[in-house]
Design a protein around this nucleic acid. Sequence first.
DNA 1: ACCTTTATGTTCGTTACCGCACATACATTC
DNA 2: GAATGTATGTGCGGTAACGAACATAAAGGT
Lengths: 240, 240
Amino acid sequence: MSNHTPTQNHLLNALPKTEYDRLLAHLELVNMPLGEVLYESGGHLKHVYFPTSAIISLLYVMEDGSSAEIAVVGNEGILGISLFMGGETTPSRAVVQSAGYGYRLKSQLLKDEFNRNGPVLRLLLRYTQALITQMAQTAVCNRHHSVEQQLCRWLLLSIDRLAKDEIIMTQELIANMLGVRREGVTEAAGKLQRAGLIDYSRGHIKVINRLGLEARSCECYRVVKDEFDRLLPSLKERAE
Amino acid sequence: MSNHTPTQNHLLNALPKTEYDRLLAHLELVNMPLGEVLYESGGHLKHVYFPTSAIISLLYVMEDGSSAEIAVVGNEGILGISLFMGGETTPSRAVVQSAGYGYRLKSQLLKDEFNRNGPVLRLLLRYTQALITQMAQTAVCNRHHSVEQQLCRWLLLSIDRLAKDEIIMTQELIANMLGVRREGVTEAAGKLQRAGLIDYSRGHIKVINRLGLEARSCECYRVVKDEFDRLLPSLKERAE
DNA sequence: ACCTTTATGTTCGTTACCGCACATACATTC
DNA sequence: GAATGTATGTGCGGTAACGAACATAAAGGT
């Protein structure tokens, strides 16, 4: 192997050489199949994860079983911020939304690195702030925007974190993420399809017209994207 | 003066004596009148604020002018986390929701303290995680719960941060916070009033039956409160 | 006491989404 | 290629919240 390298994760790639080299030996490549639950609500965190090709969804599940996605983590980020924030755990659940790969690191090793009070700490905190923006914007979006707008936002967030323009995901699961009815997603997706923006069938959604989706999305997508770009400006190249 | 002391803010009160004493001379008591804008979206942060009797609302305002509250900050917390998170600014606006007092500290002084990598850093990060929980739960609540449930949650969050059981706030402003119509708040408040849970008139809302409100609220209130209690367990006493 | 302003109450038609039921169609397996 | 399971399409009544218009009522100034 392989075409896998930790630098495919933007946070890892953004680390100075010293820190990167220190962590490298401890990074373990893991496969993340669709639907796998990486963290359960309130559970203990044995590892943190740096996705490379996978996308993780952070979900809040309510007592009555209904749920909503509050943020996504892909190759731009890290799963497990509550570890270094000091809480050890969170009330959210982390589920693999798009199958792929990532690297994991034992919790204690990340904590140790964080406590060195160096560039790793600063990078992780800036990432956390970007994640906070995403959550806050999700709250606003849930309040004010239509299912169709939110679907556009969701599709854009997903393809940004994938190399391909095709998403493997049923409408049923998208509905769970957005916290709406499956029929609502069917209807919105149908409109987008008829408008020539996407093409989908049985769990495969292909984005045909990205700009069209952006135009149809609410502003929430762009606000979040701009804030990520601002806080985590583009990542240096690293010799393979 | 006075009956004002920085220890009325729970975060300041939770600091070890060394750190508290170091900051004390730089803490400046400020009055916070209703409606004052402490931070504008994207603006520069000259100070951070530790409310004692005031409550600050964190709002996201959309392009079309509609808005929604994503979190509140009272005497349990600090306003200005993006400063130490490294972003310097956020896309949210901070408005005084309930008039009162607080202490402010020059941004650089807080940064310096944060960078000592001591108990202040750890405390602020734990607080930030609690705030994240509040935002995430707000997102879910916006998705799934009725205006009446959200109003109960909002009232409870407010009186938790006030000494009194009376809130000075018009239904119009509450509607802005919740991101709903004023009429919706009128209707929900009317129900609560007829149920004997609250008593209000022209900008004065008095909570009569706190337990009744909790029962009528969605679970979101309790989830957030429990998480705050878990992350920021009760604060030591400090000799006046 | 009057007038003005501001806060709250009420109504009405409209809309987006819900919950449910069921039809269709593709995919997989035997 | 028949059978089964899964994904998607569609229609229907119900409801919560919306937008707008307007009525009432309390507070405050002169």
